[in-house]
Design a protein around this nucleic acid. Structure first.
Lengths: 222, 222
DNA sequence: CCTATTTTGTGAAGGCTTTCACATAGATAA
DNA sequence: TTATCTATGTGAAAGCCTTCACAAAATAGG
C-alpha cells in the first residue's frame, strides 16, 4: 500500500518535485471538472507550463501510474498524489498572531478546501484574547506550550512580527510540533527534525522589481 | 554606475541568486542595527542559514564589493543590493480583489517598509466599490484598463478567485503593465515579456504535510 | 618591514535537475 | 490478428547550481 513512500524507497525526492506534485494535483482538479477520464503528460504540462518529460519523470519516482498509448487515469492519479502529499486527510492547524494577515488566513478558503483546518488561534494582545474569529476564540499566547502539547494540532502558521517570531517558534518546538508555516521575515532556528516553510511576500515583489529594472524579459533581443 | 546591471554584463543570473539577494539585504539590516561597520560572508551566511561560499559567489556576479581580510562594508553593500534589486525607489502598486487576503495586504507593513506602495484598489463587488481601505477608495474593476494605462502604477497584486484571475490579468496586460504578484491558485498565461510571481500558500502547507507524512527529517537515521 | 592571520574572489569539481530520445506497451482500427 | 498509432517510463546527456579549495589581497601585530 505504501509502495511509493519515500522512506521505504530510500530515494531522495527533490523539493521541486514535491512542489510540482501540488501543481499536478491542482491541474487534475481542472481536468476532472472537464469530465475527462484520462490525461496525458502533455496536457498536464500545458496546464502548469511545464514539459511533458518533467511530468513523467516526477511521477515515475513514485510508481507507474499511466497506461502507454492512453495517459493517466485522472481520478486515480489525483488520489495517488493526494496520498503522497498527505492531503488525503484533515490537518488541524493553530495560527499565532491574529493581525492583518493572520485573521485573513483564518477565513482563507483555499486552506479549508485542501483539508487544512485552522482550529486554534493565539495572540499576545489583551484586546484580541477572548475575541471570536470565525467561531474560534483567541487564546493567550502564554499558554501555547500547554495548549499545543499532546493536542490534535500538528501544524502552526506563524503571523507574528519578526522580532518575536523566534520566541513563538521556540514554544512551538517545545510543545513537540514539527511543521511551521512562517510569515515573519526572519530565518527561524529550529532543530533538524522540525520543518519550516517561509512565506515571504515582500521577497516576491522584490523579484518583480529586479525583473523590471533589469528588463529581464524572456524574449528580449540579445 | 550600472556596472552590475545584468543586461550590460550579458550574464545570466539565476532566480535563486536573486532570491538570496533579498535575504542578504534583510540580513544586512540586522547587522546594521547591531552597529557593525563590516560583515563577513560567514556572518551573512549564518544569519540566513546558507554557506559562506554561496554568499561570496552570489555577490561576485555583480562585482567585488568586499575587502579581503576584512569583509563587506555593511551600509555600502546594503545600498548596492538595493540598487541591483531595484528597491532603492518607491514602486506604486495596484491591488485587485479586496477580499480577506487583499485587504490584509493593503495594511501589510512589510510592503510599505520595502518601498512597495499600494495606491489603487479594484473590485467587482458593488458593496465594496467606493468603500475606503486605509485611505484608498475601491474602484470598479470595469475601469481597470483605462485607470492603469499610462498611470504611475507598475505592479499589480492579484487577489481574486482563481476562476476570474485570468480575465483580470488579461486586462492588466492590456493596460501595458508587466509585473504581477498572483495569489490565485492558477497558472496565468501572459506574454513573454510580462513577469508573474505566484504566491501559493496552500502549496506550502502541502509541502509540510508531505514532510510530516514521509518523516522526511533532515537528520534521520539511514 | 616582515610575518601571521583573515577573508575575499573565483576557476574547477562535484552534485543535482531537467531534458532528450527511444524502446516499450497498450490502444485503436480494419 | 496484424498494423499503426499514441503516450509512458527511463537510462543517458546536457545543463545548471553549489561547494570546494586556494591564490591573492588586505589587515593586524609585533
Amino acid at each position: 500500500m505504501d509502495e511509493f513512500r519515500e522512506t521505504e524507497l530510500k530515494k531522495r525526492i527533490s523539493e521541486s518535485t514535491i512542489r510540482r506534485l501540488s501543481l499536478y494535483h491542482r491541474a487534475l482538479e481542472i481536468v476532472e471538472e472537464n469530465g475527462s477520464e484520462t490525461v496525458s503528460s502533455k496536457e498536464l504540462a500545458k496546464i502548469e507550463k511545464l514539459t511533458p518529460a518533467q511530468v513523467r519523470k516526477d511521477l515515475s519516482f513514485f510508481g507507474s501510474f499511466g497506461t502507454r498509448g492512453l495517459g493517466y487515469p485522472v481520478k486515480d492519479l489525483k488520489a495517488k498524489i493526494a496520498r503522497i502529499l498527505g492531503i488525503d486527510r484533515v490537518w488541524n492547524i493553530a495560527l499565532v498572531g491574529v493581525g492583518n494577515i493572520g485573521s485573513a488566513l483564518v477565513s482563507y478558503k483555499e486552506f479549508a478546501r485542501q483539508g487544512f483546518k485552522i482550529v486554534k488561534l493565539f495572540d499576545n494582545d489583551q484586546r484580541k484574547i477572548g475575541s471570536n474569529h470565525k467561531g474560534i476564540v483567541v487564546s493567550d499566547i502564554k499558554n501555547i506550550v500547554s495548549e499545543l502539547s499532546g493536542s490534535e494540532i500538528e501544524m502552526v502558521v506563524v503571523c507574528v512580527p519578526g522580532s518575536v517570531a523566534q520566541f513563538v517558534v521556540n514554544d512551538i518546538v517545545k510543545a513537540g510540533l514539527r511543521a511551521i508555516l512562517n510569515f515573519a521575515p526572519v530565518n527561524l532556528k529550529v532543530p533538524d527534525d522540525v520543518f519550516v516553510r517561509n512565506e515571504n511576500m515582500a521577497m516576491e515583489l522584490e523579484y518583480l522589481s529586479y525583473a523590471l529594472v533589469n528588463n529581464h524579459s524572456k524574449n528580449r533581443v540579445k
